[in-house]
Amino acid sequence: MKNIIRLFMLSLITVMFFMGCEDPVKTKADFQQNYVLNSVIRGDTSFQVATVLKNYDVPGLDPNVNTQSQFIEGSIIRLWYKDTVYFMRDSLVFDPVVHRYDDPYKFYYIDGFRPDAGSYIEIEALLPNGKRLSSSTRLPERINFSEDSDYLIPPENRKTVTIRWKTERNGLMFLPRLTLRYNQIVGGVEVAKTVIVPAQFLNRNGVTDPYYPQASKETGIVYEFSAIDKVLQDISAEDENKGNFEIIHLYLEIATFDENLTSYYSSTNNIVNEYSIRLDELDVTNIDGGLGIFCSYIKNGVVIYFDELYIKKYGYKLGTN
């Protein structure tokens, strides 16, 4: 019996010895050159930007070791809009915020190009090697704010401020931003100021942090009244003379994403969850002949007024809108 056990253990150890040798794993398939076109057309500005990049490989598996910008210069980028062709120019800027390489951040741009809501735009990038990348987008229509919203502060329920809107297309994403506009007398001079109002303040581990709304497909946004209250208090935290403050109004902007930006934003900003592990993340693209995104968004806004008595509670004045 002992012999059987010895034989088994010997076999086991022998097998383990051979199995202990590591085999090299081919983690990468053969590299193939790809090209990337990115451009987000903004309906609220006449300055539009695009980038054209190429893909790359690195030794090993950590792509962060790459220190070379992959921007492709010399491309011809054309935009077709309402029977007119527009050309983008190339430029560069030193901005470490948008660029992790040492060399300047390069981009293509066009000034004076502000498309209308609902309009159709095509783009084509002709690369120096003759490769073409193309795509199209339709700017979304502007939303219509609903009457059943809270346009006066304080709201009736004194808990939340709810603004709703309607849209012609379902399934698009919206990103709200609420701004408090006020004037402050600084050194005898009236200065116009703004502050972004969070949807609520969160208390996490004893620290109070503002929470700003995320892009979502909800056709409404709820702000906690206490958050507005706190922002109104905080603006004069360093100025005891409350009479220096003149509150104008709140301004709610809604950025409406087109369907391409909606898909792209969802895929890049929403995670499955913190614990699930997915090995094949979806790479959303609408670029024919390459990767990247050509998309658009448009903004419109609505004014939310303050009740004078409410503003006077803080010692502020209510300004004219």
Binding site: T27, D30, V36, N38, V40, L53, N55
Partner: peptide, 10 residues
């Protein structure tokens, strides 16, 4: 993996 590219995040 076929390669890498610098993806744009908004």
């Amino acid at each position: 993996i076929l390669g890498y590219y610098d993806k744009m995040y908004l």
